[in-house]
Simulated scan of single mutants.
Amino acid sequence: MIWLTWRQFRGQALVALAALAALTIFLVVLGLRIRGTYDANVGCTGCSADSGAQLLKDKYFNVLLLLGFLIILVPAVLGAFWGAPLIARELETGTHRLVWNQSVTRTRWLAVKLSFVTLAALAFAGLLSLLFTWAASPYDRALNDRFDPLFFPTRNLAPLGYAVFAVVAGITIGLLIKRTVIAMAVTLAAFAAMQILMPTVLRQHLQPVVHESVAFVAADSHGLGLNQKGQVSIPGYDVPGAWVLTANPLLLDADGRQPPEATVKPCFTGEPGQAKQCLEALNLHSELSYQPADRYWTFQWLESGVYLLLALLLAGYAFWRIPRGLS
């Protein structure tokens, strides 16, 4: 069975190896360039960390963003083109009957196919994630924003969980639908749904949210806003390295109330920097909800675990169904 599975799968595997070789060369060159820019503008003696980080962002944000989309796309492609056709193609053409009439049981047939392709996808996604994480590490260290929703799912462990889930989901969907093209489309839709659901609904609840009263510090704010109600908001207010969940927090006084408009409005008559200093002198604070920076690896493990658990449940269902629901 292993030899037969390899014979059926080798064309896809060779294409994947060629793509991985090309991406490896590109990511190694990119990683060396990012390191050169980091050493010259951030890690050097007397360099300004803030200006160096901004330079890295200006120079490499777009390319890292595009590569991040590719990292996310890879599990979807593996699930649709490796997982979905693996069983659906044989059921659609009827070639599975030849194997089942031999000494190979249905369960063993499914176990070998599922294990072989899932391990191949895990290895491919793991190597790609390792290379990309290495290449982007100076950028991530300078920007200190690993929870960014555009970057969190593209580094370290998360892509491995996505790949395993996508492939097992594709195999299970193919087993149920028995039509290759439809199974591929449904697999892509299921993966896309999970990629939307996880960051928008589930991820922030994987750990209890921290609620904290934070004193307003002019140096930590990236902007100010004064609405028609006289409320002062601070868009982009940041806790270094953390995932801030409160959008545009409002400034409050010591009693937790909105300060009178007559108190804060005079601060907005000068330059933005003077406005921040003026508001800081009023001893205002904001109520923030966030996930601390030191939970990054916890979230990586938990999110990967969620996808692996879903993959395990899908695989269990496939093994339960195949002796019962197919003729």
Rank of each mutant, 00 (worst) to 15 (best):
W3F: 12
W3P: 06
T5E: 15
R7T: 12
F9L: 12
R10T: 09
R10A: 11
V15A: 15
V15M: 14
A16W: 07
A18D: 07
I25G: 13
V28E: 00
G36P: 05
Y38W: 14
A40R: 11
V42I: 06
T45H: 15
C47K: 05
S51N: 11
K57M: 11
D58C: 00
N62S: 13
V63I: 15
V63P: 02
L64R: 06
L65I: 01
L66Y: 15
L66T: 07
L67D: 04
G68N: 00
G68D: 00
L70C: 06
V74L: 15
V74T: 11
V74A: 08
V74S: 07
P75M: 01
A76R: 05
A76V: 13
F81A: 14
W82H: 08
E90N: 09
E92R: 04
L98Y: 12
S103D: 10
T107S: 15
T107Y: 04
L110Q: 08
F116E: 05
T118H: 06
A120K: 08
A125D: 09
G126C: 03
L127D: 05
S129L: 05
L131F: 10
T133F: 03
A135H: 02
P138H: 03
Y139C: 00
L143I: 10
L143R: 10
N144I: 04
D145W: 01
F147R: 02
D148I: 01
F152K: 05
L157I: 08
L157A: 14
A158R: 15
P159A: 07
P159Y: 01
G161T: 07
A163S: 10
F165K: 05
A166K: 08
G174W: 03
L175F: 02
V181H: 11
I182Y: 10
A183N: 00
V186I: 14
A190H: 02
I196K: 07
T200F: 14
R203H: 11
H205P: 01
P208L: 02
V209C: 01
V209M: 03
H211V: 12
E212D: 12
E212W: 00
S213I: 13
S213P: 06
A215Q: 12
H222P: 01
L226P: 02
V232K: 06
S233E: 07
I234P: 09
G236P: 04
Y237K: 08
V239E: 13
G241Y: 02
A242R: 11
N248D: 15
P249S: 02
L252R: 14
A254K: 15
G256E: 09
P260I: 00
P260R: 03
P260E: 01
E261N: 09
C267G: 01
E271S: 14
P272R: 03
E280K: 09
H285C: 07
H285D: 05
L288T: 09
S289P: 01
A293R: 15
D294G: 10
Q300D: 03
S304G: 13
V306W: 12
L308F: 10
L309G: 08
L314A: 11
L314S: 11
L314G: 03
L314C: 08
A315E: 07
A315L: 05
W320N: 10
W320Q: 06
P323V: 04
P323H: 06
R324F: 07
